[in-house]
Design a protein around this nucleic acid. Structure first.
Lengths: 336, 336
DNA sequence: TGGGCGAAGTTATACGAATAACCCACCAAA
DNA sequence: TTTGGTGGGTTATTCGTATAACTTCGCCCA
């Protein structure tokens, strides 16, 4: 900057003031031009560290994730966060801890050294987690999970509403025997599993239908169990006419079962999934109607909160999972 | 740091020297202890910006990607890069441009303001690309792609060798009629498509087999085309006994065709894929034998090069794609 | 007796920018 | 003539750290 000043024949302070033009038309147009020319000529770029040193806070937001970047889908979370950050001219300082607590502490420490404006603590899948104490010191929010201690604000998908919407979609198509292949809830206590189940029961209840254990199964959330339980359900005496699979992989398994039983989807059985996995849902035949986890929106929202100062008020913001219509749902074949 | 100095009853310089202990046993053990105690008591953390300001270069590496973070698989590239960077205590400053050139320029500019030690310019899939000029100024490497201008060093998968290994795997199992469903090469010029094809032809040649256009197809690399062309190949007069599908999605399509034709994999036809997509390859039945794109290794290697200074020597480092054995390959049914 | 030396610290300065406070010339109004 | 205001700058200081250069003290040896 001193070089620029010299080249423009003014003082360093003038250069700074002109560049940040905070002070309106404090300087003559001619001087301003000389400064700008010199800047371009010398290819000057302001040193961000000097700036931060003076101002106290950096134009960076820390992002700590367990394995977010390498997870096939949750990566979109980073994209959302980064988009939002950039809208305010901030960059993301990212770390994938892979669950390594030591790395987590150390990298968080480094981030704090860099005076990040805040920290997003993201998780690969929705759960309750322990957050590092050091986060208490600066604006921070838990993303795609919730702070077990209930202190930091969290942003997470609205699983209950998701389960409700999925089920309603089937009910409104005219189905009354709606099966469910969920992820095991009790042991895992996963908000996704618990919430989707709750949404399912709520929708049935609201429609005046009784919960029927005969058409409900709990599995591991993979295609094996999807296959196995769909097989069970569809070969039973009174098979359901529609199944809500609490994730897309389970739905894939159900597709395989249907194919093996020579049942058509959605002709013989309608299916709704959950997750909208881009490598799967659009490519199944027929395309899978499913709910999308709003990763990008959640990422954006988390940074939003940081930029607003993110008090540790323990609030949990649940974001809606949009229904993605494809072709796996229709009305039941015959209304018995 | 001045506070720490005051608390320990020494000068700021002493604190700095003790903390960086570069000067060996310059200070008495007692003084060192007093300093360390004061540091802990006050929860002092060195200000990274002041440090960078003095030293000129930051402990950060920039990562610019087109859509790497949001791509379901290439995200692993970031993980590798970050792992390697952290081994030297550096953090990653990441940006996803989504192809937006303006954002790219602007964020790169910001990174340079932050005096990053280098920049990794990563791509979602292997191709030739234009790199921003500003990269010329600092150590930088192109990752999972190549610099069209041939200036920056690149790290990319060895597609030719991958195609060769895949094909050899089938030849060594005893197949002599090995089909290929590749991605269209001519128009796209994609290194992946071109390279895998070359590897295929090389393996056949080496085995003394003639290239047989009747068992070769070029598609879009999706499951539709995989299905269609596998159908064509397997219903022909002399069907191949094995097919190398140049990506996993194509292989998935081939599985569907086989299923429809009531052909068993690998009993009636062996299949090798490419990509080792974690959401797909292990979940197909039978598990798909395929080649893995070495994302983590490539990410690591790119940062390695940066840390070594990464001269713009235009070198291209090709990294081997490991063969992932599952259950889609066996020897041909009968040797005609 | 004084010079040399090592141990243990301290002082002073630079890194690059932002900004409060000051300065000076010139003009208008009293 | 004095006072005051204003346009157009400049000077000096601050942020937090690293480190070269210097100081001080005690001890040993010629």
């Amino acid at each position: 900057m001193h070089d620029v000043a010299a080249a423009a024949g003014v003082s360093q302070a003038t250069v700074s003031l002109v560049l940040n033009s905070a002070s309106g038309s404090r300087f003559s147009e001619e001087t301003r031009k000389r400064v700008r020319d010199a800047v371009n000529r010398l290819g000057y770029r302001t040193n961000a560290h000097a700036k931060v040193l003076r101002e106290g806070v950096a134009g960076m937001i820390g992002f700590i994730g367990d394995s977010v970047a390498s997870s096939p889908f949750a990566g979109a979370i980073i994209e959302g966060a980064q988009q939002r950050a950039w809208e305010d001219g901030l960059l993301l300082l990212t770390v994938n801890t892979g669950g390594d607590k030591e790395l987590e502490t150390a990298s968080l420490d480094t981030m704090l050294s860099y005076k990040v404006a805040g920290v997003v603590y993201g998780a690969m899948y929705h759960r309750m987690l322990e957050v590092p104490e050091a986060l208490a010191g600066i604006p921070s929010v838990v993303l795609n999970s919730q702070d077990r201690a209930g202190r930091l604000p969290s942003v997470a998908p609205d699983e209950v509403r998701g389960g409700y919407v999925a089920t309603r979609r089937l009910l409104e198509a005219g189905h009354s025997r709606v099966g469910l292949i969920n992820i095991e809830t009790l042991e895992s206590g996963l908000p996704g599993a618990v919430g989707r189940y709750e949404g399912y029961t709520r929708a049935l209840e609201e429609a005046g239908l009784a919960l029927n254990p005969a058409v409900i199964r709990f599995g591991a959330g993979n295609e094996e169990d999807g296959y196995r339980y769909a097989m069970e359900l569809m070969t039973a005496a009174k098979p359901p006419t529609a199944i809500f699979c609490a994730n897309d992989r389970t739905a894939w398994g159900a597709y395989q079962a249907a194919s093996e039983l020579r049942l058509s989807i959605p002709g013989d059985v309608s299916i709704v999934g959950f997750d909208n996995q881009v490598t799967l849902a659009p490519h199944l035949r027929p395309g899978l109607t499913t709910l999308e986890l709003p990763f990008v929106a959640m990422g954006r929202r988390a940074v939003d909160l940081i930029l607003q100062g993110a008090e540790p008020d323990g609030r949990v913001e649940l974001m809606e999972c949009p229904l993605i219509e494809r072709n796996s749902v229709t009305h039941p074949k015959e209304m018995p």
